[in-house]
Design a protein around this nucleic acid. Structure first.
Lengths: 115, 115
DNA sequence: TGCTTAATTGAAGACTTCTTCAATTAAGCA
DNA sequence: TGCTTAATTGAAGAAGTCTTCAATTAAGCA
């Protein structure tokens, strides 16, 4: 069943690259709390609608989120619980790592930088 | 203590972007097992020396690895245990995630794609 | 139907990141 | 010193990603 074989380290790299954008991180963390409409994501994140749509498309293509229309709005949710796990692991470890790095420590001490 | 405040979600995005390259992933996983000389990384990974150096430089700048000269060779090591934690978490979760996605399942079943 | 709001799409240019090449630095050894 | 191997650097072009804009699709409502 080989066919188009993607080496695992390359799949990993693509996965991490997919996480490598501030808007996509924020979306994933918001969806980690609860499914959310584009409208609400928009007002939470505060960027242009088309810009958010582009980033949501990246997450959708990666299969990490799913969307469903609910009347006049579209609601996004994480595709599975593993995603929330990864975000939690990343938050924990990153926070620990950043805590040890002088130049980035400010980010942790500053109130408006939560999440 | 604000000064140049990097929002945490942006620091996270940068961190993930830094992980988003197949060579860098392989290096981190090799270093997760043991400190390794550039020479050995080179023969394990099988790319051009300058190409590997460029990617090692990215990891060094991010502070995730450290290097030390040992006689004629340069040995790299993970900067801290948290990095290995993150790689383990990522491997576990990614493997679970990929297992559920048809098009990528081949990667897991194929022998030469281990790690 | 026509109007409004919600959301997505495609395309263009700006910006980054990758790869490769040639040049350079450093150590070991004759 | 001169030669070899180990590793890094800087620069140039290719390739990829981001942002923004205008156009489009879809639902709700009058």
């Amino acid at each position: 069943m080989p066919g188009v074989t993607v080496p695992l380290y390359q799949a990993k790299a693509e996965f991490f690259r997919m996480l490598g954008h501030p808007v996509r991180i924020r979306v994933l963390e918001l969806l980690g709390e609860a499914p959310t409409s584009v409208k609400d994501l928009l007002s939470d994140i505060g960027i242009e609608a088309s810009s958010l749509s582009q980033q949501l498309a990246v997450l959708r293509r990666a299969g990490i989120v799913v969307s469903a229309r609910d009347g006049g709005q579209v609601v996004y949710a994480l595709a599975g619980p593993d995603v929330a796990d990864l975000m939690r692991a990343a938050r924990r470890i990153l926070t620990e790592m950043l805590a040890g790095q002088a130049e980035l420590r400010a980010a942790l001490l500053d109130a408006d930088t939560a999440a």
